[in-house]
Simulated assay, not measured.
Amino acid sequence: MSVIQLGEYGADFTADPYPYYAKLRESGPVHEVVTPDGMPAWLVVGYEEARAALADQRLSKSFSEFGPERAQDEIIGPNLLIVDPPDHTRLRKLVAGEFTGRRVEALRPRVQELTDELLDAMAPAGRADLVDSFAFPLPITVICELLGVPAADRDTFRTWSNALVAPTEDPSEQEAAAVGFYGYLDELIEDKRAAGPQDDLLSALIATRAEDGDRLSLPELRALAYLLLIAGHETTVNLIANTVRALLTHPEQLAALRADFGLIDAAVEEGLRYDGPVENATLRFAKEPITLGGAEIPAGAIVLVGLASGARDPGRFPEPDRFDIGRDPRGHLAFGHGIHYCLGAPLARLEGKTAIESLLRRFPRLELDPDAAPWEWLPGMLIRGTRHLPVVW
């Protein structure tokens, strides 16, 4: 089997990777590739194989043991995305108690209030960039308020976040963002320690103790806050924008939703399946030689699990390239699977449903801006979305 050079697919692969993934699936569910940025990896494109890989304990998430050094991981510290059990088990146990359904449900009125404020601000102009004006400020404000981060810092967070999840070819930008985040979070944590108990998630995590007295260290708190601020808003930005884009480019589905907003849950789940915010899961490493989908993956190899490709596998989802809010999209892998399943999935769903329904109710004539420039797709194979989404109403 020859090594596939994904970079040869060019800009079309970034704009619409789905036909390329479909062609790969036709010849097998797992392929040896070189990513557009030159990284050798094994890419999992089949649904069943992706689901299996996400739960396979032979695939490590630990950069410290298997991974190439990356500036932000070395600087920020251990987080849930780059550690294995028992460290992962310990961290998740300490954190999970703060991500209860009750805490998320308690946020519903505030999420609605923020949504309405943003729509009020947008309304007079008759046009906006949906990302800058709505899809970005809603989740970043929610996560900043949840963690107890001053809202005035959210623009700085966006700069750091973009550099970390959709990096340019200049690695120094990524390192500078990680260093900036590191210093800021250390100061924020120390300020909260000094201030004593407050009604925010970061203060709660600082005070959290397990039954055996275990608690989060400063590096662990910093890494967790970093993960929540990045993953807690970047994915939701693109969940909202990608689903709205899908609806606006499929008028019959948009009309069906407008006719019955009881379909909003289904619309968001189909958006997650059809064009979800995470194209490929974060890196995994083979602890030992493994066979997956007929491919022999050597020990130490990097494995990329294709969430977007798995969501378009016709063996799991009939007519997968059709956006259909009437289908049953359960089983999609947009939030992962197994022990690394996204802790923030309930909050992302709440924000997505609230934002999209409120937007469509407020602007019944919403459509893509016909005079806008072509979409600028986010680079890389991690986050799926566009930097901007101009709309009019």
Rank of each mutant, 00 (worst) to 15 (best):
L263P: 09
P29E: 03
L239I: 15
A259P: 12
T235Y: 03
L216E: 05
L43H: 02
E98F: 04
L119Y: 08
L216F: 03
Y18T: 07
F99R: 03
W393Q: 03
R362G: 07
R102F: 03
L218H: 08
V30H: 00
Y226I: 05
L333K: 04
N242Q: 04
I230E: 01
I75V: 10
H337S: 01
E98L: 04
R158E: 10
A176S: 03
I76E: 06
T100K: 06
R222L: 05
W377H: 15
H250C: 07
P86G: 07
V165Q: 02
A11I: 11
R102K: 11
A125D: 12
V303S: 00
G338F: 05
E187C: 10
S133D: 14
R127A: 11
L382T: 03
L221S: 12
W375K: 09
E69Y: 09
A286G: 03
A194Q: 10
A311H: 14
Q72T: 01
G180K: 01
G294L: 01
E173P: 01
D200C: 12
E113H: 13
G344I: 06
A373K: 15
E351W: 06
H340Y: 02
A255F: 09
P40T: 14
L114H: 09
N238E: 13
F181E: 05
A256V: 11
V179C: 04
A125E: 13
L228R: 06
G306S: 02
P277V: 02
S27T: 14
V142C: 11
G38Y: 12
M381S: 08
L218F: 09
W42N: 00
R245H: 15
D260Y: 13
T354N: 08
P68M: 12
E113P: 02
G300Q: 08
A372Y: 01
A266D: 14
A135L: 13
A96Y: 00
L221N: 12
E105S: 15
H340K: 00
E98S: 05
A207I: 04
L368N: 14
D120S: 14
R25Q: 04
E169M: 06
G183M: 09
T386Q: 12
I189Y: 09
L138D: 03
L368I: 15
L24I: 02
A311M: 13
E288F: 08
R92Y: 12
V244R: 07
I356T: 09
A121Y: 12
G300K: 08
A299C: 10
Y341H: 15
L185T: 05
S133M: 13
V44S: 01
G315T: 13
S62V: 00
F134M: 13
R349V: 13
L91H: 05
R90T: 07
D321Q: 15
Y21C: 06
P289T: 12
K93F: 01
I140M: 12
K287F: 00
G46R: 00
A301V: 03
L80N: 06
T291K: 12
G101N: 14
L366D: 08
L347I: 08
D328R: 07
R209Y: 01
R108V: 13
H332D: 10
L248I: 15
Y21D: 04
A41Y: 07
G271C: 09
T115G: 05
A177E: 00
K353G: 15
Q5I: 12
D313V: 05
P17M: 00
P370M: 04
I4T: 14
